[in-house]
Design a protein around this nucleic acid. Structure first.
Lengths: 366, 366
DNA sequence: CGTCTCAGAGTGAGCGCTAACATGAGGAGC
DNA sequence: GCTCCTCATGTTAGCGCTCACTCTGAGACG
């Protein structure tokens, strides 16, 4: 509205044209506030046209080496920095990537987000994050629209729940979108962790330790991650011919794990539990402890995520680890390919998690 | 580079001017690719000048109600969305806020970031996040420069370490900056939690339970948070006339807490410990457990942060909680005030944390 | 020795918007 | 009835960049 020096706007190009080394940034020699150097200022100083400066900046081939050096020197001297808004306006493309993420600090999404921001930053892209409170259709659609307004080059949607699905279907294909942790069955670009494989590995590990069957405390049922882990658990049991006990439903919190654990702790037939994440496992651990059931003496337990603290639970937790750096890297890679090559076909990258063995698993007491 | 339809650029404004309801978005009736509607399209449809459309969009006063409605209808019909890049270019101001954050998933910074993104989104701002690997001068300076290139309206620096300090001093005052978790003694805009008060409350609580003194496992010494907690702990001891034992240095991890706990567990005179965060406390808990020292029977323990899992540690952890939503809200508030009012003087908002009592504290055994 | 080619530049238009100024109609004030 | 002001709107000129041209001179080629 009223930033200082706004009145000086039509001034510019005052002073002798060849005055060397003047333009620092915001205050001229006379102490007057002036604008930041633009491409034409660089051009004038280097004795070329603004278009040549543009060519140097964008690495175009047909520029003589000597000219290139002269321009670079001028850029350096003026401390020139290109105006991204102008470039975006002129090209219709930006160096901005949009992310739609759930408004939570859950370990998975938070780790993924951090890893993606880091990877994108390293690749020279900015990341604009839009948090959504509930992952329903209108919220996600609004967040996507918001990003499109900014002319982002591409969008990443961290949409771990089923309710987000329909919103994704509505996104016009004019802007590249990659979904992370979304519906593995959808026909778009998707990167996710093989939840089913991870859950199978955990369940098999417990069966192989000698347990007749494995109980499962699941995450919220509308999360794909949770559903995939249930599927893997069930499949491992079925393949081994073991009885499939009822799922104990929960959310992702230690509180829910504790409540589930209180139930399971009173059932003597429960000797092995696979929890859908480490925080649930922590709650279960405490419930077992309170009921005097030792882990792994009486009950074996496996979690999922390998949060950094899992190794310091009592006892240290056997769990399943996904490599979020890898997921983020793949996501970025896929998105950039879609941006530059205009690819639009369905692509799926499903990364395998690994079992991390610690001490919360043992053979069942006889 | 070669997006489809780039060649059709100089086309546009084909077709009968008054053809109603045509302009969906990207494909005209003939199936040809065309550009998204711009302000002039809206103006033509509404029978006004583009400037009037601009006035309606920006809520200027001098527009007749009837005209306003006509313009709004045209906007609706065309599905018009303003081009932010153009607006940014024209005004030199954007609706983008830049955040510089450490590349970690530590509970504090991660929670703060999420809360800030949420708050900013609610206020109609986008948030561009730049992660920095190490919080040293060049890294932070580069991140800030990156944001300035994008013409962000303001910048938030989450700079919890001392080494970040000098970088902050270099930032020109042309762009509003608010520091979070930074040096409480610096003369800029700052929002932070009163670490010292929180640590004092924890330490006093242990003293009041009857412990002769309190031992401290600290965070990394270059973090302001850690330093503040050490100060508060020391001050509470001194004010109570208690002996001040040596600080056990650590980082923020459960692993470091475990190592520190192994030391403390062998010292019978240690009956009360204040850990600089909950994850350290978790590690200490396990070390105590392994050595057969019960918490709170033999040793009382308090953490800091109140991570959601702390209530499910064994035993449930007494800790200190900061309200990150409040911190984020204050930060946004402060930043927006600086952006709109051009305020530049030093401002400090220091928010008080609260003690959350659970069961890890008891009177010392006699 | 004239013509063609092509690297290495420059010129002008326009991306979609806002800011400043211009215009014109209607009413208040004398 | 005239001036002067106010409200509602239009006109014009950029913001700083890229794109599609045009222009120039030197070498290749017949």
């Amino acid at each position: 509205m009223d930033s200082p020096g706004a009145a000086a706007r039509p001034a510019a190009r005052a002073g002798s044209p060849e005055s060397e080394g003047v333009g620092v940034e915001d205050v001229s020699a006379e102490g007057r506030v002036t604008r930041a150097p633009a491409m034409t200022d660089v051009a004038r100083l280097a004795g070329v046209s603004h278009q040549t400066v543009s060519r140097v900046l964008n690495g175009h081939p047909n520029v003589r080496e000597q000219t290139r050096l002269r321009v670079r020197a001028a850029i350096e001297e003026l401390g020139y920095r290109p105006n991204r808004a102008a470039r975006t306006l002129a090209t219709g493309r930006s160096q901005l990537l949009g992310v739609v993420a759930p408004n939570s600090t859950l370990f998975g999404p938070a780790s993924l987000l951090a890893a993606f921001e880091w990877a994108a930053g390293t690749a020279g892209f900015s990341v604009s994050v839009r948090r959504v409170g509930v992952l329903d259709r209108p919220s996600i659609a609004a967040a996507v629209e918001h990003h499109r307004d900014q002319r982002v080059a591409g969008i990443v949607v961290i949409a771990p729940t089923a309710s987000a699905n329909e919103a994704l279907a509505e996104i016009p294909s004019t802007v590249p979108v990659v979904t992370v942790d979304g519906d593995p069955l959808r026909g778009t670009a998707l990167v996710t962790v093989d939840q089913e494989a991870g859950a199978m590995a955990a369940t098999r590990h417990l069966l192989e330790a000698g347990h007749p069957t494995v109980w499962h405390v699941s995450g919220p049922s509308d999360w794909f991650d949770a559903a995939g882990r249930v599927r893997g658990w069930r499949r491992a049991l079925e393949e081994a011919g073991a009885e499939v006990p009822p799922v104990t439903p929960a959310d992702w919190s230690a509180a829910a794990g504790y409540r589930a654990g209180q139930m399971l702790a009173r059932m003597p037939e429960v000797t092995a539990v696979f929890a859908a994440n480490d925080h649930l496992a922590l709650g279960i651990l405490r419930a077992m402890h309170e009921r005097g059931r030792s882990v792994p003496g009486d009950v074996s337990l496996i979690g999922f995520d390998d949060v950094p603290e899992a190794a310091y639970y009592i006892p240290p937790l056997t769990t399943v680890r996904a490599d979020f750096d890898e997921v983020a890297g793949e996501t970025l890679h896929l998105l950039l390919r879609r941006i530059t090559d205009g690819e639009t076909g369905p692509v799926r990258r499903i990364l395998s998690p690994t079992l991390v063995e610690r001490v919360s698993v043992a053979a069942p007491a006889r």
